[in-house]
Design a protein around this nucleic acid. Structure first.
Lengths: 118, 118
DNA sequence: ACATGGTATATGCGTCACGCATATATGTTC
DNA sequence: GAACATATATGCGTGACGCATATACCATGT
């Protein structure tokens, strides 16, 4: 067997797209296209195919769930599917955030972040 | 066409294993197994197959090169292949480090790093 | 001398996740 | 109603992946 990181039993480390999704959802409920726009606002490009497949995968994993109701900010667009982060999703997002922060710290120690504010 | 991130013309963002390699080599010349041990000391697990294939790929890309001579720290083990980071490799490593630091900063803003020192 | 375990590099195998393209349809604006 | 942005979804080809295996050298112990 074997795939990308394939059917790995360990969910961590997260795939980049998975962390982008949880990062958006940690700030509040979002629909798929809104997650893409969030990533764009951070200067990150998410492929739509990669995103929607990751959303389906993460629902199966229990990291995210469908929002019970549309948020107040919704314009009434019936096409939108809103997602919320689950307690388990929040856990893995925090663990991944700590891992990334530690990696960035190591990068600073190696001199890769000279002139970049902390 | 498409592969993992496949034959993407853009080298950025780097794959996780690629950043781990450049992070190790930014601190000095290393051989393959030494890079694995470096990652372990950071709590990151690198698969040996993934590592050696990434090393070959990154040599072709010009991000790393073979060290001209064995470093003074070498014990005389003839099996070792030492690598050094190239100017281009240092560039992309810095860019990727900035991206990761920005991502960690966003994670902090979203409350995913509460109680974690800066 | 031989066994054991750590070090060191490399490749074979199966396949998933990926990037890219395309499809479909609704919302918005002019 | 044309044009474009929004929104979700799937088909396609394949490279990179995790895991196993192969090979061999080095160090230590008995």
């Amino acid at each position: 067997m074997g795939m990308d990181r394939e059917r790995r039993t360990e969910p961590l480390p997260l795939r980049p797209v998975e962390f982008h999704i949880l990062l958006s959802l940690a700030a509040g409920e979002r629909h798929g296209y809104g997650i893409i726009q969030d990533a764009e606002s951070r200067g990150e490009m998410l492929d739509v195919g990669t995103l929607y497949r990751a959303l389906a995968r993460m629902r199966e994993q229990g990291f995210i769930g469908a929002a019970s109701r549309k948020p107040a900010s919704d314009t009434g667009d019936e096409r939108r599917n809103y997602y919320r982060i689950s307690p388990r999703g929040l856990e893995v997002a925090r663990a991944e955030a700590r891992r990334l922060a530690a990696l960035a710290h190591e990068a600073r120690l190696c001199g890769l972040l000279k002139g970049v504010a902390t």
